[in-house]
Design a protein around this nucleic acid. Structure first.
Lengths: 339, 339
DNA sequence: TTGAAAGCGATACCAC
DNA sequence: GTGGTATCGCTTTCAA
């Protein structure tokens, strides 16, 4: 157990009360914005508090009210999730919004395998008022947490839509359709796709969008042009190599995220072909990598900060006793050189 | 004020005490690993606790001990810090280590302009046991926090080394020297550098390393080959364009981070030249972008997770009452295609 | 070795 | 409107 010097000296209600000549109860009322306090005395309290540099003790408040003012933000700790710039930005979006409401984000980077994993256990423990999940982990675990009464918001659509899980997501389907239509619309005859992880709804939806684009533009869907990826660079590269070997006349590829799109481009170059001249490429996300790569990556921009912010707002709503509806954020095609 | 349903039901010492037939004091002793408790009764307590699914109430403990078991992790909220994959990984490193010690990381994404900014204020408030700063913000603010007795660790060397700030850092100077030597050693005659932000020690040190390499290999240092950057892609690109215009015979460039290295490469390509044939490029960091870019970026790898972990460990040491010495982590040259 | 009891600081119920 | 006070759950003297 850590042994530390005593925490910095803190002002308490008692001192404010003394200074302002009122009771601690009144101090509490004033500081919590209770109207029915004589305005003079209220003023006196405010003044005393600020003079004494009062800062509320969250632990005490939490103990008394049962609410902690803290929300857990749970990130899957699989290989390098946090190395993807995406999540960092989401995190920023969440944190900013919660901060404004004086709620702190407690970061939990960890695996959430089973219902009695340490994290799940902790989340039930009542030391946070709710949890926001980045990436749907084992959905079962999330469900059970919800059932136990923990306010939960997940970023990304749950597989089981009938469930009562509150979520926010990007319009993956439409975004993918946009991407694919752009390829098809700019003259590509044979457009392949590298999907994301198909066990996640985002993976499925982006594939659906790809199909929808074909249908809507009167192109036939060819299953042979679909390679099932896992969001990662290396994997996408390997799959693309394979794809190109089998179908040398592919002239467009939609990758379900930017990282994979770079893998796709790497493969194309390795095959001695050019982007976009021989094969056009479109990604999804519009992260820093899309912007700094050469050729610049044409991609689908999603509002990443907005995603985090929306999740935070949904959480706030739940804490308010409301039942927020899922939020689906729009996407936008960003044209660069790759397609 | 949020209105929520009551927190999940929680077991308390009272119930454990009743079930185990001992006093609450004894329960506390056992659960906190106090030796001098009769081992039978101790066993009974442990058993009762686990049967009842006891989970400690952090707020109560914090109120009683004055320690919260929480560490703030402060990230500067300047344009997109979190969009750089670097910090996400550092975050993961911190979180993992602290988690093991049952300490939570409270994320604060915010600006820390002045000594009485909301964050500074909050940090003094005693709701966290310490703070880890990613990026040295206004160093003055950090100093004042330290002076007020808050345990602080910063990631990145402080400008004022005589200060009592505990820090961890990568060996920037040596890393930069490694990078530059590689360029010089593989036949480059005229090696330029795009520095990082020179107001940060990392920026200075990487420039020093560049100079040291020249000196050590008997090359003359030419101030004309130094462009002062700010870690960003766009800026690096602009600077490189300018550099190449003035010195068309530059055949190597060391960029003080990977993001800038990509900017450098973008500029080189824009000038119709090739990497590494015409101009070789070396970066610093070895983040995801270095790996996914084509040509692959030769760069200096730093142990990013290790940086976070080291910071966390230093914090733990401080909390233990020790005075950790600065930790400087080694670097390593990673060869890819760009140089 | 153990238990009784006094806090920690804020909240909220109950009287006045 | 306002004040007194019990309470939240855990830790930690102080006695025994």
């Amino acid at each position: 157990m850590p042994v530390t010097s005593p925490t910095t000296f803190r002002t308490t209600y008692a001192e404010i009360a003394a200074k302002a000549g009122v009771s601690r109860a009144t101090v509490s009322r004033v500081l919590n914005g209770d109207d029915r306090v004589n305005s003079d005395r209220a003023k006196a309290v405010i003044e005393a508090a600020s003079k004494l540099g009062y800062r509320t003790n969250r632990a005490a408040r939490a103990l008394s009210t049962g609410r902690t003012g803290q929300i857990a933000v749970v990130i899957d700790d699989s290989p390098n999730v946090l190395s993807d710039p995406f999540w960092g930005v989401v995190l920023a979006g969440i944190s900013r919004v919660l901060m404004v409401h004086d709620i702190h984000s407690v970061l939990m980077v960890s695996q959430l395998e089973s219902e009695d994993s340490p994290i799940a256990n902790y989340l039930e423990g009542g030391d946070v008022d709710g949890a926001i999940f980045l990436t749907v982990h084992k959905e079962q675990v999330v469900h059970s947490l919800v059932k136990k009464g923990l306010p939960v918001v997940v970023i990304g659509t749950p597989i089981d839509l009938k469930s009562d899980i509150v979520y926010v997501d990007t319009d993956n389907r439409l975004g993918a359709e946009l991407a694919t239509k752009h390829l098809l619309g700019s003259g590509c005859k044979k457009v392949a796709t590298i999907t994301g992880d198909i066990s996640a709804v985002a993976g499925i939806d982006r594939l659906e969008g790809y199909k929808a684009a074909h249908k809507s533009l009167g192109h036939e869907f060819n299953p042979d042009l679909v390679a099932y990826g896992d969001w990662s660079f290396e994997n996408a590269k390997t799959l693309t190599l394979r794809l190109l070997a089998r179908n040398p006349d592919i002239d467009g590829i939609f990758a379900a995220n930017d990282t994979m799109a770079l893998g796709v481009m790497a493969a194309i170059i390795e095959r001695g072909r050019m982007v976009p001249d021989h094969v056009a490429v479109v990604g999804f996300d519009d992260n820093l990598m899309a912007q700094t790569h050469r050729p610049g990556l044409t991609t689908i921009r999603q509002d990443i900060v907005g995603l985090g912010a929306a999740a935070a707002e949904s959480m706030l709503a739940i804490l308010q006793g409301e039942t927020p509806v899922p939020k689906i954020l729009p996407t936008e095609l960003v044209l660069r050189e790759s397609a």
